[in-house]
Design a protein around this nucleic acid. Sequence first.
DNA 1: GCAAAAATAT
DNA 2: AATATTTTTG
Length: 313
Amino acid sequence: MREEDSNWFSRWEEELPSPEELMPLSQTLITPDLALAFDIRNPNQNYQLPPPPPPPVAALPLPSPAVVQPPMPTSSEFASDSGDLGSGGAGDEPARTLKRPRLVWTPQLHKRFVDAVAHLGIKNAVPKTIMQLMSVDGLTRENVASHLQKYRLYLKRMQGLSGGGGGDPNGGAGTAGLSATADPATDHLFASSPVPPHFLHPSRGNSEHFLPFVPVPALQRQHHHQQQQQMVAAAVGHPHLQSQYHRQLGHFGSSSNGQFEHAFISRQNQQPLHRMGGTPLHNRVPSSHVEDLESANGNGGRKVLTLFPSGDD
DNA sequence: GCAAAAATAT
DNA sequence: AATATTTTTG
């Protein structure tokens, strides 16, 4: 491997979550309604997809804060279309025919995506695998596939204007800011996440070799104690979505204490139960740093993504 | 009406 | 699974 490789590899090592850090792997993507619709149990019983497959992939212990969209189909009184429910009103029937709301790829989610791809290597970086590695519940293979498509396009473009056969185009494809790679108008999302060098120059067949080990898959909360779900209004600034999300947040966070009583599903260790010897499971939640649910709102702050402070990156 | 993002179809 | 096309959203 080249120096660049080892270099970025080192970075990865640093970025590796310490046992205490990698606890918050729980990503919550689907809304309780959806969960119900899909007949998904509580995290306690945590079980949904009986994985028969042989995917040797385990949940990637990304240090990123648990954070995902609160996609909301159409709940409660928001029934604008689907002219039924004339009787009973807010009949939030656990319709299995529920179509998923639009998934929004937040920088955090994308980061996770990139990390997953990076660790998988171009070879294994296929939608299915990526999806499994990300282990973001609610995330579908199609979601990943679609995003992967765009991501590949993005990479291609990068290669194109990075100097073709160039050696080292740009050490870091820009870090959450502006980079020399392309104008900021390129892709807001993609530009926010560091692109592993390997992607830009897969010159030699050396695109596999990372983490020989896939550490602890993460743990679930210790108890049913009232824990605040870490949710984020990622849809800030989106007139349309905002309303939906707002009502959702309002719905969930309606509790006086501001805590969500709904237990979100987590597909953390839904993987084939591989007995991991005496793997010591850290059952202590780090220090659930809660992010603000509101970032920019109401006022003229149509600034999008004032997203939670990404501890990493 | 256009552009970007995500979904969906092939 | 990859790519093309369509739909949705900003």
